[in-house]
Each structure stands twice: as structure tokens, then as C-alpha cells.
């Protein structure tokens, strides 16, 4: 059974169709990159899966359970976590408070301290700045905080929207290193929006290419980088 299944999903904002009849499935432990030009609907797709925007129609399943229509809080409680575009950390809260917001729903109270240790080990800067205001962190540190905050909910599936946006290449390397390391550690299923096919190929995984609210190609990230399908997507060539 697929870990995550999207079937005939559509998202509309008024008359504008952001996602049109889109389907794909993700298996457990898989790493899937979603790429495509600005406005392709990548963020809308993740937001719909996380319940932050309502789907016009279609079905979203995790472990065979239907998530669509549940609402963001219920979806989070079932083990799906989001690292949203622009990070959306709580700037007025401390780093530690940011990490604590998502633990309130957990039943396994004993494991929360262990998870905190795990994310502090993966991102030592967060331990160092635990009592600092999250708004005072640099962009890269805020990205790490957003990832760590999502991990603190103990998710089975994690959606990450453009973690490299606005970060220096070196920092992006570090973010992906940690992300992959934590994925292995926790057996996470990862769906990552990443504009750069070269980056996706280097990290490794499956890649879906989106354009105009649809998936136009699906394959291994390394092939994409080689075949430069991205260019075709950007400039409207046949996929």
C-alpha cells in the first residue's frame, strides 16, 4: 500500500486553477522531489495535502486513510507534517518554544525529550540559541528550525517546500545533509519542493516535474538533470 496517495486532486483559487486532476503515490521511506517553474502549483499541492488549503475535488490518503476534508490540525495529528514555503517560524517565540508548539498533540510524552535531543544533535545551533527569539535567527537557521519544528511532531510523512530558497549554497548543502540523515534515522517519507534539478540529482531520489498544475514527468532525479527536462518545462517544450 502506498504511504501517501493523491488521486484526481484539484485546487482552485476563485476562477484560477492551481492544481488540475493531479495523481501520484509515494511509497514508505521514499524521497520525492517536486520541481517546476514558479506558479506551477507546487506549494498549492503541498498546502492541499497538509489541509491548509481546501481541495476543489479529489482524494488524499495516508496509509489508506482519507485525509482530504479533515482540516490541518487533524491531518497533523495523523502524522503528516509541513515545512512551509518561507519557513513561517513563530518569530516572537523562542527557538525552544517553536519546537514545543507541535508536541502538544503527542501521546508518547516520554519520547519528546529524545526527539529534542535528536534535533539538537542534528542542528547544534538550535541548542545554542534555544532561549533566543526565533526572529533573531539567520535565514539558514530559521530553515533548520522549521525542519526541526516539523520533526518534533513525530511525523510519518514530511512535506518540505523549497528549503533552499534564499540560502547560500553551502547552507543548502548542510540543510539537505541533515534532512537526509534525519530521514534515514526516522524512516520518514519525504516530499520536497526543489527548483534545482541539479540539486535534486545530487541529493538523490525520485522527481516529479510540474507545470500548469499537472505532473508532466515522473522519474529518477539524476535522469532529469541529465535530460534537462526542466528546460523543456520552463520553456513549454513537450514533456
Amino acid at each position: 500500500m502506498a504511504k501517501l496517495g493523491i488521486f484526481d486532486l484539484a485546487v482552485r483559487y476563485g476562477k484560477l486553477t492551481a492544481i488540475a486532476d493531479l495523481s501520484f503515490t509515494v511509497t514508505e521511506g521514499e524521497r520525492v522531489f517536486i520541481s517546476g517553474p514558479n506558479g506551477a502549483g507546487k506549494s498549492s499541492l503541498l498546502s492541499a495535502i497538509a489541509g491548509a488549503v481546501r481541495a476543489a475535488h479529489g482524494r488524499i490518503e495516508m496509509d489508506g486513510e482519507i485525509l482530504s476534508g479533515l482540516g490541518a490540525e487533524a491531518i497533523a495529528r495523523r502524522g503528516l507534517s509541513m515545512v512551509p514555503e518561507g519557513r513561517r517560524i513563530f518569530a516572537g517565540l523562542t527557538v525552544l518554544e517553536n519546537l514545543t508548539v507541535g508536541t502538544g498533540m503527542r501521546r508518547d510524552r516520554g519520547a519528546v525529550a529524545d526527539d529534542l535531543e535528536t534535533v539538537f544533535t542534528a542542528f547544534p545551533i538550535l541548542r545554542e540559541r534555544a532561549r533566543a527569539s526565533a526572529g533573531a535567527l539567520s535565514g539558514g537557521q530559521q530553515q533548520m528550525l522549521a525542519i526541526a519544528r516539523a520533526l518534533m511532531t513525530n511525523p510519518k510523512v514530511m512535506l518540505v517546500d523549497e528549503p533552499s530558497l534564499g540560502l547560500a549554497p553551502k547552507v543548502v548543502d548542510e540543510v539537505y545533509d541533515r534532512l537526509c540523515q534525519l530521514q534515514g534515522l526516522r524512516g520518514l517519507t519525504l516530499v520536497i519542493v526543489e527548483q534545482s534539478s541539479a540539486r535534486a540529482a545530487r541529493v538523490g531520489g525520485r522527481m516529479l516535474l510540474m507545470r500548469g498544475g499537472r505532473i508532466v514527468a515522473d522519474g529518477d532525479a539524476t535522469e532529469f538533470a541529465a535530460r534537462d527536462l526542466l528546460t523543456e518545462a520552463y520553456f513549454g517544450g513537450a514533456a
Binding site: A52, A72, A76, S81, F90, G102, T153
Partner: peptide, 17 residues
């Protein structure tokens, strides 16, 4: 804590359960 988080970004707080 939840009230302060929700006051800053309600949808994000909901996405954290």
C-alpha cells in the same frame, strides 16, 4: 504557548496540530 503561536500564524499552528 498555543495562543501565542496561533496569534502569530494561525494556519501554521494548526499544521502543528
Amino acid at each position: 504557548l498555543e495562543m501565542r503561536a496561533a496569534a502569530e500564524d494561525f494556519t501554521m499552528a494548526r499544521m502543528l496540530g
